[in-house]
Simulated assay, not measured.
Amino acid sequence: MKEDRIIEEMFKTLKGSFDTEEPEAGHEQRFLEKLSNVNGVVRLTPKKHSWWRPLSIAASIMLLFAVGASLYTNQPTIDEQLAEISPEVSQTQFYFASLIEDQIKELENESTPETKKLVDDALLQLNKLEINYKKLEQDLLNGGNSKLILSAMITNYQTRIDLLQEVMDKIENIKTLKNYDDENITI
């Protein structure tokens, strides 16, 4: 208790001499600068929030997505491009292609050991004609003489059909000769 009295007396004697006013604006900043200059202390300042870095990262990601999307967009096929140039070409191509496909299936079904070489040769020739046709398609897309190229494309299809028909006729002849030879053999 004796200590409490001492403290009370000290406060009574100091009454009115206390500084009760608030410090001026920037007092803390000035104090910290003086403190760092005296002691050689490096002051850590709080980082200001910068939106530049996250914004640049987001923009980079968006750019990568845009480039990726442009690489994976479907470019129109040659058939679609031909249909844009001339819808009749597309219809004609569909008709001939389905007709040729049916004849090729029929040809493959008629393949026997006696006709295998003939069928294989016909398929090889058809493959060469298909490659030639692809070149004609490309020439048409590149802006060549469209009437001349379209005529060549139709001729290519007709050649394939004629080839298939000729091979089928030869296969029929081979079958007929085989049946004829078998009938003439006596036991």
Rank of each mutant, 00 (worst) to 15 (best):
Y180P: 13
D120T: 05
D139S: 01
R43N: 04
L164F: 00
S146W: 13
K135F: 07
N179H: 06
N132D: 10
I131D: 00
L126H: 12
R30L: 14
T115G: 04
M1W: 12
D121E: 09
R5Y: 14
D79N: 11
L71N: 01
H49F: 09
L136P: 12
M62E: 07
D121A: 04
A66Q: 01
I85Y: 04
N142K: 13
T13K: 06
E106K: 02
N39V: 14
F11G: 02
K147V: 03
T20C: 00
E137T: 09
Q75H: 10
S90I: 06
N39E: 12
K116C: 04
D120P: 08
L63T: 11
K116G: 00
E106L: 15
G40V: 06
K128M: 09
S146N: 08
L64F: 09
G26I: 08
S111C: 11
I100F: 11
K170S: 07
L123D: 04
L148T: 13
E80S: 04
P113K: 06
D79W: 12
P87A: 07
L107C: 04
I187M: 12
E108F: 13
K117L: 07
S98V: 10
Y157M: 00
K117E: 03
Q165H: 09
D181G: 08
L14K: 00
S151D: 00
H27E: 05
T77Y: 08
I174W: 11
S111E: 08
K105C: 04
I174E: 10
G26N: 01
D120Y: 02
I85E: 01
K48P: 06
A66R: 11
P76F: 09
Q158M: 03
E101S: 09
N132K: 11
L14E: 00
E172D: 09
Q158C: 12
D139V: 01
K12G: 06
T159I: 04
E106F: 14
T13G: 01
E3I: 15
E108N: 10
H49L: 12
R30N: 11
L63Q: 00
L14R: 01
D19H: 13
M153K: 06
S70T: 04
S146L: 07
T186G: 01
R53K: 06
E101A: 09
K135D: 03
S146G: 04
L177A: 14
V119I: 08
L164Q: 02
N142T: 13
Y72A: 12
D79P: 05
T159R: 10
Q81N: 02
L126R: 06
A66K: 06
E110G: 05
A69S: 05
L136Q: 03
L82A: 10
A69E: 01
M168G: 07
R53D: 12
N179D: 00
